[in-house]
Computed example of a mutant assay.
Amino acid sequence: MRVDLFDFDLPADRIALRPASPRDSARMLVVRPDGLADRTMLDLADALRPGDCLVFNDTRVIPAQLEGRRGDAKIGATLHKREGPRDWRAFIRNAKRLRDGDSVDFGAGVSAIASDRGEDGSWRLSFDGDEPVELLLERAGRMPLPPYLAGKRPTDARDAEDYQTMFARKAGAVAAPTASLHFTPRLMERLAAAGIGHETLTLHVGAGTFLPVKADDTDDHRMHAEWGRIDAATAERLNAVKARGGRLIAAGTTSLRLLESAARADGTIAPFEGDTAIFITPGYRFRAIDGLVTNFHLPKSTLFMLVSALMGLETMQAVYAHAIAAQYRFYSYGDGSLLLPA
C-alpha cells in the first residue's frame, strides 16, 4: 500500500511532553464497530468483559542513549538490539567520523569498539572491560526518549521513572511499551475485581520502532528485528482464556506483535523465543488477539499502519480526526485508546 495513505495532519501541540498524573487519569477513546466513546483509563474495566485477559510486556527500558568521543569527534549512540553479552547494535550520530576498529569513549570509565557497519547504517559496539554492560549503561547512559519528545525538551530525572511501566522486570528495551504506562495498582485492582485477568510476556523493544518509513510503498519497508519470549506456561494460560470464551486484549502494540508472531494457524499461542520482525499492515489476518489498548501514533508510522490493519484505515482516519478535534494527547506520554474490532 502507498505510505501516504497513512498520513494525516497532527498539530505539534498534540504531542504530550509529560504523562498524565496520576497515570490512570489519562483519557481513553473506546472504539467499537458501533461507534466511539470518550472515557478515561480508569473506565477500562467497564469497557471489557469478565473473563477477558490483558497481555502486558514486562520489558524494562535501559539507559541506552550514550554520548562519547572518538578523538576530537563527538559520537552519539542509541543502542537498539543486543547481539551478545558485551555487543550491541547501535545507531550512530556523526557516523562519518567513525571507522571500523575505532574506540569510542563514553565517559565514566565506559568505552566500546565500533565494528561491522550494517546496511542500515548501524554499528556493532563491543563494550570493554569485565563489568556487566547493564552497570556500564547505568553509569554513562541516559533514558532514550523518542525523537519527537527529545527534540522538544531534554531528558531529565523524571523520565527515569516516567518512562518505565509498572510491569517492567526484564532489562533490555530501548523504548517503553507505552500503552502500559497508563496502568497503576489502583487500575489493576479494578480490573481484577471485574474478573479481568492479565498475563505478561517479554519483547525487548528496539530503537527501530522510532524510525520513519522512508519507502513510498509498505512492501518496501523493512522492520528491525526484536527479541521476544513467551514461555510454555504463559502460552498455556493464554490458550485456556480463549478456550473459555475470553478475549485476549493486547496492552500495547509490542504485546500484539509478539502474540501474533507466536500464533498458530488456528489462533492458539505457541511458546516463542527468538527474533521477530513482523510488520502488520491492512490485509493482515489477526489470529491471536481480540482487541488492543494503545496510544495515539504518529502519521505514516508503522504503528498507525498496525491499528489501521486491526480496525480498517477509514475507521482509524475518523478515529484520529475525532481525537485531534477532542484534544487527545498523542504519542508515548499521551492518552490511550481501546480498539475492539468486529
Rank of each mutant, 00 (worst) to 15 (best):
R264T: 06
P282I: 11
Y320R: 07
V30H: 02
R89E: 14
G76A: 13
L42R: 15
T218F: 11
I196A: 01
F279E: 05
K96A: 13
D156T: 06
E273H: 11
D87Q: 14
T234P: 02
M188P: 00
A321Y: 06
R39K: 12
G334I: 04
F330A: 04
A263W: 05
G51M: 09
A318F: 01
M41C: 13
F56H: 12
P22H: 11
G246Y: 02
F272Y: 15
L258S: 05
A16V: 09
R186P: 00
R142K: 15
A251D: 01
R287G: 02
L201P: 02
G274D: 02
G291N: 09
F210A: 08
N57Y: 04
G68P: 06
A250M: 10
T276K: 11
D116P: 00
G76S: 14
T315P: 00
M41T: 10
T253D: 01
R86D: 14
V110M: 08
A171M: 08
G141D: 03
L258R: 00
A207V: 04
I289H: 01
S261A: 15
S255E: 00
D216T: 14
L303P: 03
H224V: 06
D100R: 12
P50F: 06
A160H: 13
F272S: 06
K242D: 04
L36C: 09
D34F: 06
L136M: 15
A192W: 03
H297D: 08
R82P: 02
I269W: 04
G76L: 10
A250V: 12
P11K: 13
L125M: 10
A90S: 14
L339P: 00
L98W: 06
Y328M: 11
H297E: 07
A318H: 11
G35N: 10
A193S: 13
T200D: 07
G35D: 09
R18E: 14
I249P: 00
D216M: 09
